[in-house]
Design a protein around this nucleic acid. Sequence first.
DNA 1: ATGTAC
Length: 472
Amino acid sequence: MNTLTLTGKDLLEIGFKPGKAIGIAISIMEETHPETSKEKQLLLLAKVLASPSDYQEDEVLAPLAEALLPPKQEEIISLMPEAKEYTIYGAAGIEAGVLSQMDTAMRLPVSVGGALMPDAHQGYGLPIGGVLATKDAVIPYAVGVDIGCRMSMSLYAIDADILTKQSEQLKRMLLDNTRFGTATFKNPKDHAIMERPEFAAIPVVKSLKDRAYSQLGSSGGGNHFVEFGVVELHDAQNEFGLPTGHYLAALSHSGSRGIGASIAGHYTKLAMQNCRLPQEARHLAWLDLNTAEGQEYWLAMNLAGDYASACHHQIHERLATALGEQPLAVVENHHNFAWKEKDAAGNEVIVHRKGATPAGQGVLGIIPGSMATPGFIVRGKGEASSLNSASHGAGRVMSRTKAKQTLSLPQVQLYLQEAGVEVIGSGLDEAPMVYKDIRQVMQSQQDLVEVVGTFNPRIVRMCGDEMYMEKD
DNA sequence: ATGTAC
């Protein structure tokens, strides 16, 4: 690392605020002052920061001056005085900050409807667990950073007692066939997704192609997982045509890796430049779907969603090969995405679900609990006041920081042992007790979904090695 | 969530 190179950190130290000005400053210096010492560059940049208006006409520094000056008042789009009404599910378990975020979203002039799911918690822009319908506009931060983050489950005609009788083999299958954190497959399996024209047509997407290929079939980090467990199908009228009873199942949770995160970052920046909003709403900047930028995001978002799906398919293909069986049934759904849907009056709206499961009439989805609590195969009831949505999980009750401060490894290991769950990887921040009681969450959304089957995790792989766990 | 700022 060349410490003589100008970095964002240097600029923060001389008083730059986090934001696009830092990026602009660095690229101007790289392009126009490549031979100047870092000290002299910083001296010049400090002058611009102190008095940006002096540099508005500067041939080289004008873009930086523009970024440092407050946006002109007339450019700021006003919010509506009143928030449009929205329905809250499981209100008792939702903190106040979430409601204020959702209120702000419901004051955008483009918002036409919304709802909060019972697992809602605070996020950038729209809360996670927030559903927002807009007219002709897409909000990158109402889709989320992990575009197309989704669930996928395969059900097998394999006796569930394999989970106890051959648990070592199943653990080995997870270790061999999944990749977490920065790890990827040495030789990624090819996939048709890599032939998509968007990789050639959209410059920012093109720049992400190599990394997308190298990350194919990997899972990432955070709350992502791949696990084996047992599904109990309760509903004799299930869509799979399967008898009720117990099935071995593989369940995965992950998203679009670097490509989705970079697409989200790129188009959020673009939206925030073109759509100036009051401070509390700035992360809700939208792209007009009738502009080139809006259409480009829509294509890139859909590509990221299909990429996330491709990763899940490869995970499940590898596991199917390892098990030597083809699945009887597969259920999958995005929960960070935007869709073109019809509202009650039949008008097309853009429905953003940021951590919410599509739950239109008869639509199947998966709502996971935690590493040691049940998840559910659900069938949507098409409830209009939830905008055909349900929660995407249990929702956290404890922050990652607090979890690491207050939970102890022996305490969590005892809990897992009693629950009969083996965990490979993970950290204390994903312990079952950091999540709400999933049964209660399901209770508060019984108007939104019905349960087709219950999944109990048994062998779980997540990112990290803090609490590698062996069952005795 | 993310080659875990620019």
